[in-house]
Amino acid sequence: MRVLAAMSGGVDSAVAAARAVEAGHDVVGVHLALSRMPGTLRTGSRGCCTIEDSMDAQRAANALGIPYYVWDFSERFKLDVVDDFVAEYTAGRTPNPCMRCNERIKFAALLEKALALGFDAVCTGHYADIRTDASGRRELHRAAAWAKDQSYVLGVLTAEQLAHAMFPLGATPSKQEVRAEAAARGLSVAAKPDSHDICFIPDGDTRGWLADRLGETPGEIVERDGTVVGEHRGAHGYTIGQRKGLAIGRPAADGKPRFVLEIHPKQNRVVVGPREALEVSELAGSRYTWAGAAPEAPHEEFDCDVQIRAHADPVPAVAVVRDGELVLTPREPLGGVAPGQTAVVYVGTRVLGQCTIDRTVSAVPQPAS
């Protein structure tokens, strides 16, 4: 097969490309230039898609003896990921930019261009597994090493995208093995630290980054009954479940710590309450997709597990498509679920699908006003 290996400049994508070459595929490496500041330098494990990452990817491609190119996707990345991130926070939601990047850049824009150029598959260094069912249809499954499993951020992939995806690291039992393999192959990225945080906010200061773009507009912090307990500098600087940085001027009447429960951007208001009020009994989203074949009867309730964060534990739930939404009811209430987050649905190790959460139902009744 002709395989396009997406090479981020990290050890995972380099080893994935090496395994594709070793498997006998005709491999071409490509680095996606996503930053609008191509001279940006990397700081330890913070940031990615920098000029240093591009050079690391090229060194790896040279060591593997494969052609290497840099494709400028910075404009598409700004529109589909960065601008979406800002718009979601403006709307009082908590987005996951990694999901949008995988959905719209790595497995939409990149795959579209790869297929147009005659490639059969796109290879990445994600820790996930692709299996084929009895009917020959491809399914997305968790990686062998659950500690490194990245199937959650791939939950947005469709059947068509899975048909052209390749994840050579899916069966690898540990990251240590990948690093050892990179060292044995003479790849200079063998000891390179993993990147973390949001790639376009390398210093990790999301609130400051948003304030620079959206400004600061003071507003009220209120209890669920409407009692004003403090003031904020901009509702977009808060996320559901946040405790630190609330600057509430006086203790709550019940003496319990306060957490962000709701964000109302139109009123520029942040609602806070006790931890137990974060628990939700239902979550739903109209923007849902299936990763491979859809359930046989999605309009009938079925058992599943739901995961709401990349590193969260999956929890048992009941799912159903109703009134244009994928509705998920966890067997036990879930805490800290925010609109804008992604709920990924599993059946066993298989990723069945996902939805962007539009609404939640609180497990704790609203107090009478």
Rank of each mutant, 00 (worst) to 15 (best):
V315H: 15
D197G: 08
S13R: 11
D26K: 06
A163K: 02
L246Q: 00
D149F: 03
A60S: 15
D203C: 02
A180Q: 03
C123F: 00
E139Q: 14
H31Q: 05
V318T: 14
V345H: 04
H299T: 15
A33F: 00
T132G: 00
L110N: 04
I198G: 08
Y89G: 09
G9M: 03
Y68C: 06
A145L: 00
R233L: 02
P218D: 03
L117E: 03
S188P: 07
Q161T: 04
A253Q: 10
L246G: 01
T43C: 11
S188W: 10
I105A: 08
S45H: 10
P333E: 09
L210N: 13
Q150W: 01
E332R: 14
S195G: 05
H31F: 09
R331F: 13
A60K: 10
G118E: 00
R104Y: 10
V364P: 00
D84E: 14
A277R: 12
E216M: 11
P367A: 08
K244A: 15
H299E: 15
A368F: 09
H25Q: 01
A190Q: 04
A23F: 04
Q150R: 06
P67Y: 07
D313R: 14
A91N: 11
P314C: 14
V351N: 08
D80E: 14
R224D: 03
G24A: 03
S135N: 11
Y69C: 06
D205W: 09
R275D: 02
A121T: 02
L169E: 11
A368Y: 10
E177W: 12
A171R: 13
